[in-house]
Every structure is written in structure tokens, then in C-alpha cells.
Design a protein around this nucleic acid. Structure first.
Lengths: 248, 248
DNA sequence: GGATCATAGACCCTATAGGATCTATTCAAT
DNA sequence: ATTGAATAGATCCTATAGGGTCTATGATCC
């Protein structure tokens, strides 16, 4: 009897119980719909305030309303869309200056705590951080090349990749903190962080500034000092907040 | 308590959508199912690891599977349930000691930041905090009376109310921070905080300890000092972590 | 001309049905 | 006795249909 139970215990079940992800990620329709809707919200296809009709979205995406509804519920907790019961979903308006300040205040809270906890494990962190930074530098270089040739970056695809590399640098530090709740919260905030990329017309100068400041953070971790990474991160976040607030 | 959480979340979303909307809280079936399921998860009716069948839940609650599905999606992001695509939902296992440590580490991060930001607005905070603390004291007194009469508190209803008052004290401070993201994150963690009440057999002694420590925090805010509330909060959270970790 | 009411359309919410998948039991074969 | 496949049951996922509500347009009345 016991052997049967052991045999019946699937690897996916064991992985879920242990908190690990299954080897092959299985996806239902609702996950694909979620990605599609998130894409629309992030690249500005859906202007703020526009209504998200369940039925119309289902027709556009060629699925039934049910997975659309599930994806919208999942999207609701990101803050990108707002729901009024018996009235429907709408794209949330862009963050007010006050909310923007609160967002960066929150980022400072979370990432400062992450840095404080990551310095003790700098040996494991520094190599990963170097790799993440290298990818960021590579993207920035490519964007600059494209800009030099065409005079303007081609759409959002290259910029998005660069922004993703930027965010990945931050996530690497947060992961090193070893706190799953911290990581989960940061990921929940990522939607807002990515959305304000599209609002502010970030030129390549901002990207280069970010690369430089990330380099300073990396160097601070490499120095082995316990205080310098924290101040470097503080300066970086404050600089990003200034650049975002003082947009055209 | 569940309805309060949901109402707060809705008001926050409405505020983020378009200013203030003191509308009557309209509720769809989905919200009621969410509350019912949260109730089951918090009072231990659903043991960890048990499967949450959509169809069976729909039959039990006498609704169709669709609102059940929506409520499960909404519940998924709280961490109380885990989903495997094409396999179903299951009640998440209780937090491991490591996760428990991370949870309290996260609480320390968030609530320390909240205290730091709340001290500047102590004039507005102190009256609200006094009221919240009074409700907590009242609940604790009633629980002690009941315990003295019957020898044991009647079920969870009274204790739950007391725990809700405890948490409301913390939320009051976090609200005073003026950071919506901080508040939203704390509310997201509340599910875990409330769930571990049921696991550990908290006697009335723990409640009294919490009341005393809350009183110390309140006194620290009343003193006008900028440092004392922070250390009082630190001591409180550390004490709670010790009491939870050293359970029977 | 302005306001009120009625009607129509669109939408959300809920319920039911069918196809596909997974789990568990059963049975046969080595 | 253990392994393997096959079948039955249950469950999940998706699609479709109907009831109720909200919004918008147009007509009527003051």
C-alpha cells in the first residue's frame, strides 16, 4: 500500500509541495490570455481609462469569456486595471505624482532591505550581478548603435529588452536577499515600474545613466564594504525618481 | 474580517481609479465566494494539502463554477492556495520555519518603514491608535472573562475578533505612513499572518503579551520621541516571532 | 428649450453542457 | 508478486446560452 502511494505521488505534486516549479511549465489558456493582456497594457495599446470588455476581448483573442475573466481577475491585483462590480473593467489611469512618489518610496524600502541582506552573501551575488550587468550593458550598446544609425530606436522591442535587463539587475539583488516575500512583493510592483517606462519618453541618455549607476552598485558590492552598496542603491533610486518625475 | 479586507481593497482600487468614490459596496457572487473560501482557509476547515475542487465547491456553496473559479484566482495570489495547471487547486502547506522567519523579516521591513514615516504625523495617528488599542484591550478582556468562566474560549469566534483587533492596530500605523503600496503589501501578507494564528495554539497569555507590547508602542508614539516607536515595534515583532516559533 | 421617461442596445453575471485530461482502480501478463 | 496496460470515474478547461443591469439615445411633456 505504501509503495502504491509513493508511486502515485507525481513529480509535479512533489515539486508543488516543495515550492519548486515543475520541470515543464504547463500552461492553460488563461495564462496565455494573461500574457497577451499584460502586453497590451505595457506597450500602451490600451490607453488609460479605456474599458476592457470581457466579451470583446474574448472575440479579439478568439477564446471564450471564461479564461478572459480569469486573466482579468489575476491582472486586477497588479493595479494596472480597476474593476467595479457589475460595471466592468477599465484600464487604470497613470500614477499620480503622489502615487509615483509612494512607488519609489516603496522601492527604496524594499531594495534597501534587499541590499542589506545581500551584502552578507556577496560571494554568491557578485558573479550573478556581473552577468546581469553585462547583459544590460550589451542591450544599451545595441540601442545606442541603432539610434546612431536610424536616428531613433526601432519601436519598443529593443527598449523593452533593455528595460527588462535593467529590472533583472534589481531582481538579482532582491533574490540574493533570500526572502521570498520580498521577491514576491517586488515582482508585484514590477508592473507599475514597467508601465511608467512607456509614459516617460526615456531617451538613450537615461539608459546610459542607469547603466553607470548600476556599475556603481556592482562596484560597491565588489568592494566588500557593507555600507557602500546601500548608498549606491539609494543614489540610483533617487536619480531614477528624479528622471521620471522631471519628464517632458 | 474578510469583508473588511475586501471592502478596503475595493475602496483602494476605486481611489486609484478616479479620486474618491464613497459608493455603496456592490458585491457580485464572486466576492461572497471569496469571503467564504477565505473563511474556510483561515479557521482551519480546509486542512493543508486538501484539494479544492471547483465543481465540488460550487455544489457546496450552491453557485456555478464560474464565480468559484474567479475567487480561486483571486485567492491564488495570497499564497494560501497553490494551483497546478490542468491539475487543480490545493490548500498550500503551512509555512516552513524558514518561510516563517522570512515572513517576520518582511513584516519587520514593512512595519519599520511604516513607523519611520508615521512618526512625522503622530498628531493624527495617536488618537486613531488609542481607539484601535482600546478595542484590542476590550476584546482581550472579554476573552479573559470567558476563559475564567468556561475554562476555555468558545471556539474561534472570540479569538478571531481579538486577532482582528490586533492586526487593525498594526494597520493603523501602516495607514499613517501614507504609502498606498506599503498598505497594499501589508494587506497581502495579512492572510499568512492570520493563518498562523490557527496553527499555533495561542493561549490568552499571548494575547495579553501582545496587548502590553502594543501599549508600549502607543506610549512610544505619545512620547513624541522619534526613535522609541521604532524600537518598540522591533521588540514587539521579535517577541511575536519568538512566541510563534516556540510553539508546542 | 430643458427635463423626464421610455426604449433599445451592450455588457456583465451566472448557469449549463461538452471535450480533454488526470487519477485511481482493476485486470492480465511476465 | 510485480509490472504494465486498460478502463471507469472524477475533475478541470472551454464554449455556449439566458437573465439581469447599466448606459445611451430618442421621444414626449412642461
Amino acid at each position: 500500500m505504501a509503495s502504491e502511494m509513493n508511486r502515485n505521488e507525481n513529480s509535479a505534486v512533489a515539486a508543488a509541495a516543495a515550492g519548486r516549479k515543475p520541470v515543464v511549465p504547463r500552461r492553460a489558456l488563461r495564462d496565455g490570455v494573461y500574457d497577451a493582456l499584460l502586453e497590451r497594457l505595457l506597450d500602451g495599446s490600451a490607453p488609460p481609462g479605456s474599458s476592457l470588455g470581457i466579451d470583446s476581448l474574448a472575440r479579439e483573442l478568439e477564446v471564450s469569456p471564461t479564461p478572459v475573466r480569469e486573466a482579468l481577475v489575476q491582472l486586477e491585483h497588479t493595479g494596472l486595471i480597476s474593476r467595479v462590480a457589475l460595471k466592468g473593467y477599465r484600464v487604470a489611469p497613470p500614477l499620480s505624482p503622489e502615487q509615483l512618489a509612494e512607488l519609489f518610496d516603496m522601492r527604496t524600502i524594499l531594495e534597501s532591505a534587499a541590499v542589506e541582506r545581500a551584502v552578507s552573501q556577496a560571494d554568491d551575488l557578485v558573479p550573478e550581478l556581473r552577468a546581469a550587468h553585462a547583459r544590460h550593458v550589451l542591450c544599451a550598446h545595441r540601442v545606442r548603435k541603432l539610434r546612431g544609425a536610424d536616428g531613433r530606436p526601432t519601436g519598443f522591442s529593443d527598449l523593452r529588452e533593455c528595460f527588462a535587463a535593467d529590472w533583472e539587475f534589481h531582481l538579482t539583488i532582491i533574490r540574493a536577499s533570500g526572502n521570498r516575500f520580498l521577491l514576491k512583493t517586488a515582482e508585484a510592483l514590477s508592473a507599475h515600474v514597467h508601465r511608467l517606462r512607456q509614459t516617460a519618453d526615456h531617451g538613450t541618455t537615461d539608459i546610459e545613466r542607469a547603466v553607470d549607476e548600476h556599475a556603481a552598485i556592482l562596484a560597491a558590492f565588489e568592494s566588500g564594504d557593507a555600507e557602500r552598496p546601500l548608498v549606491a542603491m539609494h543614489e540610483h533610486l533617487a536619480a531614477v525618481a528624479r528622471r521620471v518625475s522631471a519628464d517632458g
